[in-house]
Simulated scan of single mutants.
Amino acid sequence: MPQITSPLRGEGTNRDRGAMVPRSPAHHPATTTAVALPLRGGKGGGSLRHTGITSMATAQTRTLSRIMMAPAVIVLLIWMIVPLVMTLWFSFQNYSLINPMMTGFAGWANYIYVIGDPSFTQSLVNTLILVGGVLAITVIGGTLLALLLDQPIWGQGILRILVISPFFVMPPVAALIWKNGFMHPGYGMLGHLWKAFGLQPVDWFNQYPLFSVIVIVAWQWLPFATLILLTALQSLSEEQREAAEMDGANALNRFYYIILPHMARAITIVILIQTIFLLGIFAEIRVTTGGGPGYASTNITFLVFRTGILSNDIGAGSAGGVVAVIIANIVAFFLMRAVGKNLDA
């Protein structure tokens, strides 16, 4: 019988099933290439075009924002860099306000004079005592006032306003109020109180000058600490307090194990912000004690003022200002590390 040769696989037709047998893609590379390309107007092309438009819009927005911020950044840099550069330049010069025509390069002589002066060490110690004393009073007192103001008492709103109001008093005005209205031994309120009990009035600014400045500055910053700590205290869940009370915890244990850990971050923020400002205390010392008696109430900031303005030595005063900036940055560096660890905990 004659043999019937079947068509090659992948070619011809399958007449029995009436369907076309698909051809292998390997034999038709053009078909394979056509399948790999996305169709015009399909999802792939639209997505690519959308991504490109978004990237262009983002780049344009960034460029526009940088252009709009540039004037403010330039003004801020000029505001900061120009005084710093001038201070650095004067710190290496022999420049006195008494005879400004006689100038010359002093090298490191101004820095050696400032750091070697015995008043510098005393001023540095006074600065640390001032900052530490104010922080201790404001943090402890602010915590106690926050606990008191958090209680449901009559006239709570008015009481909060009265507690916060000293923060809005200007430092020279606050210093004058305390100097003449409270601490003056002759006609101050504390002097009359001492006399009422048959005691000798205390001359606060001569006998306890640094303590007097600490009290005045702490009075100004106590409302700030109270406000921050009260806000943190009010965010504490009432269910936690009630659960601890039902478990038999007394008030001291509830404060130590629940309230104080909850306020830890707020206390850290208070310490950070106040330290930055307390390193530059000037007006209170200038109005009340003038840095005296001697250098008993002089801090680094007032020492720079004494050297540069009162002694008319701009070179040494500028050197003292540079040293003060370096000390402030060192303190801020370690403080930021401590704050970062506490905030990340």
Rank of each mutant, 00 (worst) to 15 (best):
R62G: 01
G142D: 00
G157F: 05
Q234E: 07
L233W: 07
G157D: 07
H192L: 07
S24Y: 13
E242T: 11
T31G: 04
T63L: 10
P83Q: 07
L162M: 15
G291K: 03
V125N: 07
F333W: 07
T138S: 10
G41L: 04
T5N: 03
N250K: 01
Q156V: 06
L229M: 14
G116M: 05
G132K: 05
I177W: 11
T288L: 05
M183N: 07
G186S: 09
G12M: 00
P293H: 01
I314M: 05
F302G: 04
N94R: 14
A316L: 01
N110W: 00
S119A: 13
Q156S: 06
G52K: 08
F282L: 12
S123R: 01
L310H: 03
I140L: 15
T13K: 09
P7T: 08
N253I: 08
L159D: 00
L48T: 06
I259A: 14
V73A: 14
E284F: 10
L8D: 13
Q200K: 11
I326Y: 04
A345S: 14
V85H: 05
G155S: 06
S91R: 03
I285F: 12
G291W: 05
I285S: 12
A249I: 03
S297K: 06
S165Q: 03
V339Q: 11
G308W: 08
Q3D: 14
P152A: 02
P25T: 00
G248F: 00
F168R: 06
G44Q: 11
L76S: 14
H50K: 10
A251H: 11
I78M: 13
A264E: 03
W79Y: 15
G191C: 12
H27F: 14
R254W: 13
I53G: 02
T33P: 00
V202I: 15
K195P: 01
A106P: 02
A59S: 04
S119E: 12
Q220F: 00
I81N: 04
M1L: 11
S318K: 12
V287R: 09
L190S: 08
I67A: 15
G41S: 05
H192M: 07
A72I: 05
V215H: 02
P223Y: 01
F277T: 10
Q274T: 11
P100K: 07
L145K: 13
R306E: 14
V322Q: 03
L335H: 12
G45Y: 00
S119N: 14
V325Q: 05
R241E: 09
Q240F: 10
I137T: 08
W204F: 07
I267W: 01
S65C: 13
Q151Y: 13
Y95C: 04
L229W: 06
Q200C: 00
L144T: 04
V323I: 15
I67M: 15
I269C: 02
S6V: 03
L130E: 00
W79L: 15
L190F: 15
I285K: 11
W221D: 06
R9L: 11
N206W: 01
V322K: 01
P261F: 02
W204K: 03
I326N: 02
D16I: 10
G280M: 08
L252C: 02
I214R: 00
F105E: 09
P29C: 01
I161F: 05
S311T: 02
